[in-house]
Amino acid sequence: MNADIVALLGEGFIETVIMVIGSGVLGSIIGIPLGVLLHVTDKGGLMPKLATNAIVGVIVNAIRSTPFIILLVAIYPLTRLIVGTTIGTTATLVPLVIGVAPFIARLVETSLREVDRGLIEAAQSMGATDMQIITKVLIPEAMPGIVAGVTIAIVTLVGYSAMAGAIGGGGLGDIGIRYGHNRYMPDVMWTVVLILVVFVQVIQSFGDWCVRKVSKR
């Protein structure tokens, strides 16, 4: 493997990190509040609004059920409207965020459901408002599960970013397809796979460490 390929792999890795971390952060900013909304507006929630819950739920499920490679192509007009192009690392952030935010929302909703109902009732008996219960009870108690869910979502984004590379999204996926597959360079392909495996392991280990930190009372 020559120096040019090594440099290309380094550039591709940086692009992949930008795509994964950038979309993970933006997806969390959207997905976590969305998950809270789904939980509190559900039947038996703090602020049950079944119509709102149903509408948001349908949108979330529709996006989640769409294969990412199809979603990537389907929202080309929106991507072009936002960033002015449909190829490259920046353009790929749009479908990555749209794809991962509903996934995070459902994981957050699941974590919130596991919070002991007795804690919520105790807070209500002391006169806490709904917003105080959400910010002081629900989210803190569910934080380990939320962090674990976000970690899972970010790991999933590594695979999404590789798929995006297959159609001009940049990153290691693009290098693996263009050089490893199209130019019959298996050493490049396996190097890309190895880098992605190590990257996923680092993300998972860091996420597990964060879960342990927020679990300490």
Rank of each mutant, 00 (worst) to 15 (best):
T129A: 03
L46N: 02
A122I: 00
G45M: 03
T89Q: 10
I59E: 05
F13R: 09
T16D: 07
N2L: 09
V158N: 04
G45Q: 01
I134S: 06
V17G: 12
P186D: 03
P33M: 08
A148W: 11
S161G: 01
K136F: 14
T129S: 10
M19D: 00
P102S: 09
I152T: 14
D4E: 13
M185S: 14
G173V: 06
R64V: 01
S215H: 03
I195Q: 06
F103L: 14
L9P: 06
L78K: 12
I55P: 05
M185K: 07
V56P: 03
D4P: 07
R113Q: 15
G10M: 01
A162F: 03
T135K: 12
A101S: 11
E121F: 06
I63N: 09
L78V: 06
H181Q: 13
M131V: 14
G99F: 07
L34M: 11
D130S: 15
T110L: 15
L50G: 11
I167S: 02
N2P: 00
M126W: 11
A148L: 12
V73I: 09
A91L: 04
I133H: 02
V200A: 08
I195F: 02
L93D: 08
G180D: 01
S161N: 08
L119G: 11
G45Y: 00
L71E: 06
T89F: 10
R106L: 14
V150E: 07
I139C: 04
I98A: 05
M163D: 02
